[in-house]
């Protein structure tokens, strides 16, 4: 099979970019695209795709697979993709494309724009004046469980009291202790999960849409605590500071030991669900 003649990497879609928009992109001095080339605007009807011509030999499916499995290359590609998407989003509503969406020609991209014009325009309208905010929260499962058992409740009026007496070294006592430990751990994890659910439930009404991302495994990072929330919220751009403040407040109230608010992000997490 002979190598294809060209390849066009798609970063994002936006409403038709006028000269001001193009100047904005040209203003990204020194910002190279994925392949080190110039980022271009490709317009069809009311839509503009922001693209770059890349070497088809370097951007075949196999090559992409290899490159994206290499951490340094993946980081480079992801960050360059992101930098361009941020620049486009700064000009107005933008629909980011999934990393590594490559077409064999500009013409194929124009065809896509015209074929799905209505759908893309609707999505852009939905995203206008909105931005994505990330909220991550961590909880200390053990501490949550200790706090709960120390707190007298209706179900457990006196709290859990340790029974004084001589240490029992029998096998039955060992098994009982082990069972209690496991039960406490499970209870702590249940409480931690509920902490994340509580934060999320409090933030959903403040957002136009929300999306839960997979939780990061903190065991791999050596961090203390358990990540209990890794979510994205689509909010009005103007309300970002207030939303961030709400996120910190509800996280503290829910018993999280850490909370991190990130953004504003281009609406990556909401580019594919205009009806959400």
């Amino acid at each position: 099979m002979s190598p294809p003649a060209g390849a066009t990497w798609v970063y994002a879609l936006s409403g038709r970019l006028g000269q001001a928009g193009l100047d904005g992109l040209d203003g990204l001095d020194g910002l190279r695209g994925i392949g080190g080339g110039q980022v271009r605007a490709l317009t069809s009807g009311p839509l503009t795709a922001v693209v770059e011509s890349v070497d088809p030999g370097l951007f075949s499916a196999e090559k992409l697979q290899d490159r994206l499995t290499d951490p340094a290359d993946l980081e480079l590609v992801a960050r360059r993709h992101h930098d361009v998407v941020v620049a486009v989003a700064a000009l107005g509503a933008a629909l980011p494309f999934r990393l590594a969406t490559v077409y064999l020609s500009d013409e194929r991209v124009r065809t896509l724009l015209s074929e799905r014009c209505d759908e893309f325009c609707q999505a852009l309208g939905w995203l206008a004046d909105r931005t994505e905010c990330g909220v991550k929260a961590w909880a200390d499962a053990e501490a949550l469980n200790r706090a709960r058992t120390a707190q007298p409740s209706a179900r457990n009026p006196g709290g859990r009291t340790a029974r004084p007496g001589r240490a029992d070294h029998s096998g039955a006592a060992y098994l009982a202790r082990r069972r209690a430990e496991l039960a406490a751990r499970a209870e702590g994890q249940r409480l931690a999960a509920r902490c994340g659910e509580e934060i999320h439930a409090s933030l959903v009404p403040l957002a136009a849409a929300s999306r839960l991302h997979p939780l990061h495994d903190t065991r791999a990072t050596g961090e203390t605590g358990l990540q209990v929330l890794n979510a994205a919220y689509l909010i009005d751009s103007a309300s970002l500071p207030a939303f961030a403040e709400s996120a910190r407040t509800v996280a503290a109230r829910a018993g999280a030991c850490e909370v991190a608010v990130t953004g504003p992000w281009p609406a990556y997490s909401f580019a594919d669900q205009p009806d959400a």
């Binding site: 390849a7 879609l13 075949s60 499916a61 980011p96 999934r98 999505a123 999306r211 992000w265 594919d272």
Partner: peptide, 21 residues
């Protein structure tokens, strides 16, 4: 990078391009 990868690898418009993962 973790936050970025959550978004660029799992978010964005998913279109069957000519060459896509």
């Amino acid at each position: 990078l973790v936050d970025l990868l959550d978004r660029v690898l799992a978010g964005g418009v998913v279109i069957a391009g000519d060459v896509t993962l």
